[in-house]
Nucleic acid binder design. Structure first.
Lengths: 194, 194
DNA sequence: AAGAAAAAATAAACTAGTTTAATAAATTAT
DNA sequence: ATAATTTATTAAACTAGTTTATTTTTTCTT
C-alpha cells in the first residue's frame, strides 16, 4: 500500500482539498522507483513528468564542453524535481536528472497535470505558490553566487541542506557551489583549523 | 488617458479575458511614475506592490558588508518587478529596488491582487505561468554563474538584454555579472581586439 | 558653457580559485 | 574479502578575476 501522506500534506500546506479531490489527485500519480545512478531525464530528451520525491535524492545538472558536471539543483524528500521548461513547452531538456540515492517519486504526466488543473483549478494556485517559492529561493542563490566567496557559499549550503552533507559526496557539493573539489577540500581544512 | 495595451497584451499571452474582466483588472492597477534614482523599495521595508513596467528600467539589488551593490535582476518594459517574497509573506524586503531610468509602472497592491485572484481565478494561472517562466530563466542564469567564465556570461548578457547595453552603465552590467567594473573593462578590450 | 561628479580605461601588484599530478582513503563491485 | 574504481587530500605552479591608484572620458548639475 503506497503512502500518500507526504504529498497530500505538502499540497495541504497551500490549498484545501476534500476527500474526492484528494482521491482524484492521487489517481493521477504514478509511483516510480529510481535506482542510484539511474536517469530520470537526459539532455535532449523530453521530460514527460514532474516528480515529487518521497524518498532519496535527485540532482539536476549540466555538462560543460569539458565534460564537467554542474549541479543546478538537488531534490530531496518533500520536494518536486523535474525540468519545468521541457515539461511545459514540450521541448528537449537542457538538463540531466539522475539519482544520487535510490529514490522514490510520485510522477505526474503532462496530460494528467492538464487534467488536474482543469478539473481542480485550485491546483493552479498550488503550483503558482510552489514556483513562487522556488523563484524566491533561486533569487537568493543568485545573490550568493554573485556576491559571496566560495567559503560563504559553502557555509550557506550547510545551513540550507543540513542533511545533505552526510548523504552526498563532496564532489557533488563543490559542483553545486561552482568550485572545484580540490578547492572545497582546501576550504574545509581551512575552516576546521580555525 | 493611460494606455493599458501593453499589460493587457501581456496577460492575453497566457489567459483569455472578456471585456468586463479586463476592465475589472485595470481598475485594480495604480499608475506610478518613478524618477531615475528613486526607490521603489529599500532593504527592511515592506514591498506593498508588484510592478508592471511600461517604460524605463528598474534594478533589484543587495548591498554587501562593504557597501558594494550586487544586481539580482533588471526589469524593463513588459516585465514585472518587485520582491515577491516580501510582497507575499508580508515580511521585510531583502532587496533594494530603484530606477536606472525614469520609469512608469502599473502597480497592484496585495489587497487588490488577492481580490483579483478570488474574483478571476484564471489569474492564478497567469501568475503561475509567469513565475514558472521566471524560474526557468533563473535556472539558466544559475547554470551560467556556476559554469561560465566572466567573458561567457557577458556575451550571454548581451544576447539576453540586447537593448540594455546602450541604456545602462558598464558598472551596472558588471554588478549583474558578478565581476568588478575594472575587469569588465578589461574583458571588453580583450573582446574588441580580436 | 563650466564645473563637479561619476564612470571608464589602464596598469601593476595581488589573491581566490584552478589545474595538474601524486598519494591516501573510502566505496563499489565481484 | 579483494580488487577495482571513485573520492578526498595535499602540494605546487598557474590564471582568472580583484584591488588600489592614476588618468581620461562621459554625464550630470547649475
Amino acid at each position: 500500500m503506497l503512502n500518500y501522506d507526504l504529498i497530500l500534506k505538502n499540497v495541504n500546506k497551500h490549498i484545501q482539498l476534500n476527500k474526492e479531490e484528494k482521491e482524484f489527485f492521487i489517481s493521477l500519480l504514478h509511483h516510480k522507483f529510481i535506482k542510484r545512478k539511474d536517469f530520470l531525464c537526459r539532455l535532449g530528451e523530453y521530460s514527460k513528468s514532474e516528480n515529487f520525491i518521497i524518498k532519496g535524492c535527485l540532482r539536476t545538472y549540466t555538462l560543460d564542453e569539458n565534460g564537467v558536471e554542474h549541479i543546478i539543483a538537488f531534490g530531496i524528500e518533500d520536494w518536486w524535481a523535474g525540468d519545468p521548461y521541457s515539461f511545459l513547452t514540450n521541448s528537449p531538456s537542457n538538463y540531466y536528472i539522475d539519482a544520487l540515492e535510490d529514490t522514490e517519486v510520485f510522477q505526474i504526466s503532462k496530460e494528467n497535470l492538464e487534467n488536474l488543473l482543469e478539473t481542480i483549478p485550485k491546483f493552479e494556485r498550488y503550483y503558482r505558490i510552489l514556483f513562487q517559492n522556488a523563484y524566491v529561493a533561486q533569487q537568493k542563490r543568485i545573490n550568493q553566487n554573485i556576491s559571496f566567496s566560495a567559503e560563504q557559499r559553502y557555509l550557506e549550503f550547510l545551513q540550507k541542506f543540513p542533511s545533505l552533507e552526510q548523504r552526498i559526496s563532496q564532489k557533488q557539493i563543490s559542483s553545486y557551489l561552482g568550485i572545484t573539489p580540490v578547492f572545497l577540500s582546501m576550504l574545509k581544512k581551512k575552516i576546521s583549523t580555525r
